[in-house]
Design a protein around this nucleic acid. Structure first.
Lengths: 123, 123
DNA sequence: TAGATGTATTGACATTTATCGATGAATCGC
DNA sequence: GCGATTCATCGATAAATGTCAATACATCTA
């Protein structure tokens, strides 16, 4: 099995990536991996989707409730959700016809950790 | 003069932007502003440049010392530094023929703040 | 089984972006 | 002033990306 990975980007946490920016210069590989994660956040529609999901009281949001707030077509929203999923920022759970999305706190925490300047930014 | 702004993006901190993702869904304007900031981080070369600058013992790095480590042409590095500068992530200081770059901790802190899920993640 | 509904994928198109060579602008040493 | 050095800008080009209409897929209901 050469490429079994359904999720091309593992959690940064699982990859032990990376020290805070202010601590160590990034090597090329880590920079690539991090850039991919930040790329997922580098779109206003995806940021709004993620914030809606992350701020949901139940912790989950049906995909059917996401098309309206961001005012984009259903395929476009589906595309953005896929990008967020592949970046490890959200996870999805199928529930009959519907798909529910939830945020992945560990991945967000890993990105926060990288944006720190000092080593003591608390695990 | 419709667009006199030399620095298109003010510090997020100055703009009072934004609540952590887990607290409030982003409005369209904030999402645009944030996306622009994350876009600056969404490139491996820029991440490496930023990490080299942020990890420098003196707090500053000469632009002339940045071309080598990232293995890109001088115009390319200059372009990336401009993107980082316009995103408020680094600041530059001219010193004779040379230009020294330093990280802007406030902007990095603002982005870290946004990536939090809970309101209590420090001022 | 047939129709309806919620999601995902495909194909196409316009926009953005990363990259580099060539050139311009500012500054230093002589 | 003059050449050399450092950095920024310009112009061009290839690649990546956001968007939507059309279509396919999966699941529920009657």
């Amino acid at each position: 099995m050469p490429a079994p990975s359904p999720s091309p980007l593992p959690l940064l946490v699982d990859a032990d990536c990376c020290a805070p920016l202010g601590v160590d210069p990034l090597d090329d590989g880590s920079a690539q991996q991090l850039a991919q994660a930040f790329k997922a956040l580098a779109d206003p529609v995806r940021l709004r989707l993620l914030s809606i999901i992350a701020a949901a009281p139940t912790g989950e949001v049906c995909a059917c409730d996401l098309t309206g707030p961001v005012a984009k077509s259903q395929p476009t929203v589906s595309h953005h959700l896929k990008v967020l999923r592949e970046a490890g920022l959200v996870a999805s759970r199928k529930h009959g016809t519907w798909v529910h999305y939830r945020a992945v706190p560990e991945q967000l925490a890993a990105l926060r950790h990288v944006l720190a300047l000092d080593p003591v930014s608390g695990p």
